[in-house]
Protein backbone atom coordinates (compact mmCIF):
# COMPACT_ATOMS: atom_id res chain seq x y z
CA UNK A 1 0.00 0.00 0.00
CA UNK A 2 1.33 3.44 -0.81
CA UNK A 3 0.31 6.89 -1.95
CA UNK A 4 1.86 10.26 -2.62
CA UNK A 5 0.08 13.45 -1.68
CA UNK A 6 0.55 17.00 -0.42
CA UNK A 7 -0.12 17.69 3.25
CA UNK A 8 -0.02 20.16 6.12
CA UNK A 9 1.62 19.18 9.39
CA UNK A 10 -0.90 19.05 12.26
CA UNK A 11 1.32 17.53 14.95
CA UNK A 12 4.54 15.60 15.29
CA UNK A 13 4.90 13.43 18.37
CA UNK A 14 8.29 11.98 19.20
CA UNK A 15 8.39 8.19 19.07
CA UNK A 16 11.39 6.63 20.76
CA UNK A 17 14.64 8.49 20.37
CA UNK A 18 14.85 9.34 16.72
CA UNK A 19 11.45 8.84 15.14
CA UNK A 20 8.27 10.90 14.99
CA UNK A 21 4.61 10.02 14.56
CA UNK A 22 3.35 12.61 12.11
CA UNK A 23 -0.28 13.64 11.92
CA UNK A 24 -1.00 15.60 8.78
CA UNK A 25 -3.93 16.81 6.72
CA UNK A 26 -3.50 15.41 3.23
CA UNK A 27 -5.33 16.67 0.15
CA UNK A 28 -6.73 13.34 -1.05
CA UNK A 29 -6.48 11.04 2.00
CA UNK A 30 -7.80 13.19 4.85
CA UNK A 31 -6.09 13.33 8.21
CA UNK A 32 -3.43 10.66 8.09
CA UNK A 33 -0.86 9.38 10.55
CA UNK A 34 2.45 7.70 9.87
CA UNK A 35 5.90 7.15 11.27
CA UNK A 36 8.73 9.34 10.04
CA UNK A 37 11.96 7.44 10.54
CA UNK A 38 14.62 9.82 11.83
CA UNK A 39 11.98 12.56 12.10
CA UNK A 40 13.47 13.84 15.37
CA UNK A 41 16.88 14.39 13.79
CA UNK A 42 18.39 17.84 13.44
CA UNK A 43 17.83 17.69 9.68
CA UNK A 44 14.22 16.51 9.68
CA UNK A 45 12.84 18.26 12.77
CA UNK A 46 12.40 21.72 11.13
CA UNK A 47 10.35 20.13 8.34
CA UNK A 48 7.78 18.79 10.77
CA UNK A 49 6.73 22.05 12.40
CA UNK A 50 2.98 22.69 12.58
CA UNK A 51 1.53 24.30 9.44
CA UNK A 52 4.41 23.40 7.11
CA UNK A 53 3.35 22.15 3.69
CA UNK A 54 4.91 18.83 2.69
CA UNK A 55 5.04 16.43 -0.20
CA UNK A 56 4.46 13.08 1.50
CA UNK A 57 4.82 9.49 0.42
CA UNK A 58 3.09 6.95 2.67
CA UNK A 59 3.92 3.24 2.63
CA UNK A 60 2.69 0.24 4.60
CA UNK A 61 2.43 -3.48 4.01
CA UNK A 62 -1.26 -3.48 4.98
CA UNK A 63 -3.70 -0.57 4.67
CA UNK A 64 -4.64 -0.70 8.37
CA UNK A 65 -1.05 -0.34 9.57
CA UNK A 66 0.37 2.96 10.81
CA UNK A 67 2.86 2.95 7.93
CA UNK A 68 5.81 5.17 7.15
CA UNK A 69 5.97 8.66 5.72
CA UNK A 70 8.74 10.04 3.62
CA UNK A 71 8.46 13.81 3.56
CA UNK A 72 9.81 16.72 1.58
CA UNK A 73 9.25 20.36 2.48
CA UNK A 74 7.13 22.42 0.10
CA UNK A 75 6.63 25.58 2.19
CA UNK A 76 7.94 26.49 5.65
CA UNK A 77 4.89 28.39 6.91
CA UNK A 78 5.77 27.95 10.60
CA UNK A 79 9.02 29.91 10.19
CA UNK A 80 7.05 32.89 8.84
CA UNK A 81 4.88 32.98 11.94
CA UNK A 82 7.34 32.35 14.78
CA UNK A 83 7.70 36.08 15.53
CA UNK A 84 3.98 36.84 15.44
CA UNK A 85 2.34 35.71 18.67
CA UNK A 86 -1.25 36.16 17.44
CA UNK A 87 -0.90 34.42 14.09
CA UNK A 88 1.20 31.66 15.64
CA UNK A 89 -1.55 31.08 18.21
CA UNK A 90 -4.13 30.95 15.39
CA UNK A 91 -2.04 28.41 13.45
CA UNK A 92 -1.64 26.28 16.58
CA UNK A 93 -5.37 26.44 17.26
CA UNK A 94 -6.34 25.57 13.67
CA UNK A 95 -4.04 22.54 13.65
CA UNK A 96 -5.44 21.46 17.03
CA UNK A 97 -9.05 21.79 15.83
CA UNK A 98 -8.38 19.69 12.72
CA UNK A 99 -6.39 17.14 14.72
CA UNK A 100 -9.15 16.85 17.31
CA UNK A 101 -12.22 16.86 15.08
CA UNK A 102 -11.40 15.05 11.87
CA UNK A 103 -11.66 11.28 11.69
CA UNK A 104 -8.59 9.54 10.30
CA UNK A 105 -8.29 8.66 6.63
CA UNK A 106 -11.56 10.26 5.52
CA UNK A 107 -10.83 12.56 2.55
CA UNK A 108 -12.16 16.13 2.94
CA UNK A 109 -11.18 18.16 -0.11
CA UNK A 110 -13.06 21.25 1.14
CA UNK A 111 -11.44 21.13 4.57
CA UNK A 112 -8.00 20.78 2.99
CA UNK A 113 -8.69 23.77 0.72
CA UNK A 114 -10.04 25.84 3.62
CA UNK A 115 -7.03 24.99 5.79
CA UNK A 116 -4.68 25.90 2.94
CA UNK A 117 -6.48 29.25 2.56
CA UNK A 118 -6.22 29.93 6.29
CA UNK A 119 -2.51 29.08 6.44
CA UNK A 120 -1.90 31.31 3.42
CA UNK A 121 -3.85 34.15 5.08
CA UNK A 122 -1.91 33.77 8.34
CA UNK A 123 1.48 33.46 6.65
CA UNK A 124 0.69 36.30 4.24
CA UNK A 125 0.66 38.75 7.12
CA UNK A 126 -2.05 40.99 5.67
CA UNK A 127 -5.71 41.37 6.62
CA UNK A 128 -7.61 40.61 9.79
CA UNK A 129 -6.26 37.24 10.95
CA UNK A 130 -8.87 36.97 13.73
CA UNK A 131 -11.79 37.30 11.35
CA UNK A 132 -10.13 34.91 8.87
CA UNK A 133 -9.73 32.34 11.65
CA UNK A 134 -13.31 32.76 12.91
CA UNK A 135 -14.78 32.35 9.42
CA UNK A 136 -12.58 29.28 8.94
CA UNK A 137 -14.05 27.66 12.08
CA UNK A 138 -17.55 28.37 10.79
CA UNK A 139 -16.65 26.64 7.52
CA UNK A 140 -15.21 23.66 9.43
CA UNK A 141 -18.48 23.30 11.33
CA UNK A 142 -20.40 23.45 8.05
CA UNK A 143 -18.05 20.98 6.30
CA UNK A 144 -18.50 18.49 9.14
CA UNK A 145 -22.30 18.74 9.11
CA UNK A 146 -22.90 21.14 11.99
CA UNK A 147 -23.09 24.43 10.09
CA UNK A 148 -24.86 27.34 11.74
CA UNK A 149 -27.92 28.75 9.98
CA UNK A 150 -27.48 32.51 10.24
CA UNK A 151 -29.77 33.39 7.33
CA UNK A 152 -32.96 34.15 9.24
CA UNK A 153 -34.57 34.07 12.67
CA UNK A 154 -35.75 30.60 13.69
CA UNK A 155 -38.73 32.15 15.55
CA UNK A 156 -39.90 35.13 13.50
CA UNK A 157 -38.30 34.45 10.11
CA UNK A 158 -36.81 37.97 10.10
CA UNK A 159 -33.51 38.41 8.32
CA UNK A 160 -32.50 41.65 10.06
CA UNK A 161 -31.52 42.18 13.69
CA UNK A 162 -30.20 38.66 14.29
CA UNK A 163 -28.59 38.75 17.73
CA UNK A 164 -28.40 35.20 19.12
CA UNK A 165 -27.84 31.59 18.12
CA UNK A 166 -29.66 28.65 19.65
CA UNK A 167 -27.11 26.37 21.37
CA UNK A 168 -29.22 23.34 20.39
CA UNK A 169 -30.15 23.94 16.77
CA UNK A 170 -27.44 26.38 15.67
CA UNK A 171 -30.09 28.66 14.14
CA UNK A 172 -30.01 32.44 14.48
CA UNK A 173 -32.62 34.29 16.54
CA UNK A 174 -33.49 38.00 16.72
CA UNK A 175 -33.68 39.85 20.04
CA UNK A 176 -37.45 40.02 19.66
CA UNK A 177 -37.69 36.32 18.87
CA UNK A 178 -35.48 35.40 21.82
CA UNK A 179 -37.73 37.15 24.36
CA UNK A 180 -37.23 35.78 27.86
CA UNK A 181 -34.95 33.00 26.57
CA UNK A 182 -32.22 35.47 25.56
CA UNK A 183 -30.10 34.51 28.56
CA UNK A 184 -29.95 30.89 27.39
CA UNK A 185 -28.86 31.73 23.85
CA UNK A 186 -25.38 32.38 22.50
CA UNK A 187 -24.62 35.99 21.46
CA UNK A 188 -24.07 36.39 17.71
CA UNK A 189 -21.49 39.00 16.65
CA UNK A 190 -22.69 41.16 13.73
CA UNK A 191 -19.58 40.39 11.67
CA UNK A 192 -20.92 36.88 11.11
CA UNK A 193 -24.24 38.11 9.69
CA UNK A 194 -23.00 41.07 7.73
CA UNK A 195 -19.67 40.64 5.89
CA UNK A 196 -19.42 44.43 5.54
CA UNK A 197 -19.83 45.12 9.28
CA UNK A 198 -16.72 46.55 10.95
CA UNK A 199 -15.06 44.33 13.56
CA UNK A 200 -15.92 45.60 17.04
CA UNK A 201 -13.77 44.89 20.13
CA UNK A 202 -14.83 41.57 21.56
CA UNK A 203 -16.47 40.35 18.31
CA UNK A 204 -13.80 37.74 17.54
CA UNK A 205 -13.79 36.34 21.08
CA UNK A 206 -17.59 36.22 21.09
CA UNK A 207 -17.54 34.46 17.72
CA UNK A 208 -14.97 31.94 18.93
CA UNK A 209 -17.09 31.20 22.00
CA UNK A 210 -20.00 30.57 19.64
CA UNK A 211 -18.09 28.19 17.35
CA UNK A 212 -16.35 26.66 20.38
CA UNK A 213 -19.71 25.65 21.83
CA UNK A 214 -20.60 23.64 18.74
CA UNK A 215 -17.12 22.17 18.36
CA UNK A 216 -17.23 20.86 21.92
CA UNK A 217 -20.87 19.79 21.76
CA UNK A 218 -20.75 17.84 18.51
CA UNK A 219 -17.26 17.18 17.26
CA UNK A 220 -14.89 16.57 20.16
CA UNK A 221 -15.29 13.04 21.40
CA UNK A 222 -11.99 11.29 20.70
CA UNK A 223 -9.82 10.49 23.75
CA UNK A 224 -7.31 13.28 24.36
CA UNK A 225 -9.08 15.66 21.98
CA UNK A 226 -10.13 18.07 24.77
CA UNK A 227 -6.52 18.25 25.94
CA UNK A 228 -5.37 18.96 22.38
CA UNK A 229 -7.77 21.90 22.22
CA UNK A 230 -5.95 23.83 24.96
CA UNK A 231 -4.12 25.49 22.03
CA UNK A 232 -7.50 26.86 20.92
CA UNK A 233 -8.32 27.92 24.50
CA UNK A 234 -5.11 29.95 24.54
CA UNK A 235 -6.13 31.64 21.28
CA UNK A 236 -9.55 32.58 22.74
CA UNK A 237 -7.78 34.00 25.80
CA UNK A 238 -5.34 35.93 23.59
CA UNK A 239 -7.99 37.60 21.40
CA UNK A 240 -9.82 38.66 24.56
CA UNK A 241 -6.93 40.89 25.65
Amino acid sequence: MDFTDTAFVLSARRHGEGDVILSCLTRDHGRHLGLVKGGASRRSRPLLEIGNALAVQWRARLAEQLGYFQVELLAAHAALLLDDADRLAALNAAAAVIDATLPERAPHADIYADFADLVAALAGGAGDWGLAYLRWELRILADLGFGLDLSSCAVTGATDGLAFVSPKTGRAVTAAGAGRYAGRLLPLPQILCDPAAPVQPGDIQQGLRLTGHFLHAHLIDAPGAEKRLTARDRLVERVGR
Binding site: N52, L73, L82
Partner: peptide, 8 residues
Protein backbone atom coordinates in the same frame (compact mmCIF):
# COMPACT_ATOMS: atom_id res chain seq x y z
CA UNK B 1 20.09 25.68 4.87
CA UNK B 2 16.48 24.62 5.31
CA UNK B 3 13.80 27.05 4.15
CA UNK B 4 12.62 27.87 7.68
CA UNK B 5 16.09 28.95 8.82
CA UNK B 6 16.57 31.05 5.70
CA UNK B 7 13.22 32.77 6.24
CA UNK B 8 14.12 33.55 9.85
Amino acid sequence: LDDGTLIQ
